[in-house]
Simulated scan of single mutants.
Amino acid sequence: MTPPIGIILAGGQATRMGGGDKGLRMLGDQTLLARVIERLEPQVSDIALNANGDPARFADLNIPVIPDSIDGFAGPLAGVLAGLDWAATQGADTIVTAAADTPFFPCDLVPQLQLATEGTAHPLALAATPDPKRGMARHPTFGLWPVALRDDLRAALNDGVRKVVLWTDRHDGRLAAFADEAAFFNVNTPDDLIKAEDML
Rank of each mutant, 00 (worst) to 15 (best):
F104D: 14
A78E: 13
I5L: 11
L175P: 12
V110D: 00
Q30D: 14
D172E: 15
P67S: 06
L157C: 04
G12R: 10
M1W: 14
G143L: 00
P55L: 02
Q13L: 14
G79E: 13
I7R: 03
L126P: 12
L115Q: 15
I5M: 11
R25N: 08
V187Q: 10
N52D: 11
D198G: 06
M199Q: 13
D29V: 08
R170W: 14
I5V: 15
T89M: 09
I66F: 03
A137H: 08
V44T: 01
D151P: 00
Q114C: 11
P140N: 06
C107I: 13
A78L: 12
N62L: 03
D180M: 04
M136G: 01
P130H: 10
E41W: 04
R162S: 09
L144A: 14
D191A: 05
G72H: 13
F58G: 00
V187H: 10
G79F: 12
R162Q: 11
Q43D: 06
A183D: 11
T2P: 07
I63M: 02
A10N: 13
P132W: 10
H139P: 02
L124A: 04
L157Q: 07
G28C: 07
V36G: 06
S69R: 01
I47P: 03
V96R: 00
T168Q: 13
D152V: 00
